Amino acid sequence: MSAASASDVTSVVSGQQPGLSHVAIIMDGNGRWAKSRGLPRAAGHERGVEALRRTVEAAGELGIRYLTVFSFSTENWRRPAAEVNALFGLLKAYVQRDLARLTQEGVRIRIIGLRDGLPDDVAALVEKAERETAANSKFFLTIAFNYGGREEIARAARGVAEAVASGRLKPDDVNEKSFAGFLDTGSMPDPDLLIRTSGEYRLSNFLLWQCAYSELVFMDVLWPDFDRACLEEALAKFHERERRFGTVSPGAA
């Protein structure tokens, strides 16, 4: 083991993640998990919520401050109505069951994506979760729900155009930093690591702007089976990477 990797292991054990504060996860494989067991898809989504609970707990223990998960995409509306309603119900169940505990533990909850089209009770619960955890800063849990990366970028572009038209922003001041402030994640650092489960190798319209320089780790495990050991495996792969951000390695010719 190199000196650098030994230091990384020591930091992980002590509750720190050197060079890593934000992990994003595409939680994929609930339906396949259920199908392989002869269960309805809803059962896979229910087990997926349990995996989310395990992951939130493990992430906090491992020194990660920001966790962003992809729960429901703008494209998921094409699924059968019963499954869409089940996904809404699971979001409600998760927030209702865990909100008090997460609030007490210093977790701040944010829901990113479109609020238009959400059932009134889901929208009200989302607003309640964000309001009641707004003062927390120990751990930041962001749930992308009714979210699409291209839609987010287009919406941010409209915001920039409106700001320029109203005189609040000068055209010469439009740059990567100012544009990022119009995104749903404007107050957050970009993900250092993006994990996708279920063996698929694509971003599926998730955090397209933010993941420009994220390390990508694709895992064969189906999301309902994801646990702390899986997260630690992904973190270990992250720490094996050399992040150059367009530069060259130190000492390279």
Results as ranks from 00 to 15, higher is better:
Ser2Asn: 10
Ser11Ile: 00
Ser11Phe: 03
Ser14Tyr: 01
Gln17Phe: 03
Gly19Leu: 10
Gly31Cys: 14
Ala34Ile: 02
Pro40Thr: 07
Pro40Trp: 00
Glu46His: 14
Ala51Arg: 13
Ala58Phe: 09
Glu61Leu: 12
Leu62Lys: 15
Leu62Gly: 07
Ile64Cys: 08
Ser71Glu: 09
Trp77Asp: 02
Asn85Ala: 11
Phe88Asn: 07
Ala93Ser: 12
Arg97Gln: 11
Thr103Asn: 10
Glu105Cys: 13
Arg108Thr: 07
Ile111Ser: 02
Leu118Ile: 00
Asp121Leu: 05
Asp121Thr: 07
Leu125Ile: 03
Leu125Thr: 02
Lys128Asp: 04
Arg131Tyr: 04
Lys138Asp: 15
Phe140Tyr: 15
Gly149Ser: 08
Ala154Val: 13
Arg155Ala: 13
Ala156Phe: 00
Arg158His: 13
Gly159Cys: 13
Gly159Leu: 11
Gly159Asp: 11
Val160Arg: 02
Ala161Phe: 13
Ala163Gly: 05
Val164Gly: 06
Ser166Thr: 07
Arg168Val: 01
Pro171Gly: 05
Asp173Val: 01
Glu176Ile: 06
Ser178Leu: 03
Gly181Ile: 01
Gly181Phe: 00
Gly181Thr: 05
Phe182Thr: 03
Arg196His: 02
Arg196Asp: 12
Ser198Gln: 03
Ser204Thr: 09
Phe206Lys: 09
Phe218Ala: 01
Asp227Phe: 09
Cys230Gln: 11
Cys230Asp: 10
Glu232Lys: 12
His239Cys: 00
Phe245Thr: 04
Thr247Pro: 02
Thr247His: 14
Ala252Trp: 15
Ala252Lys: 10
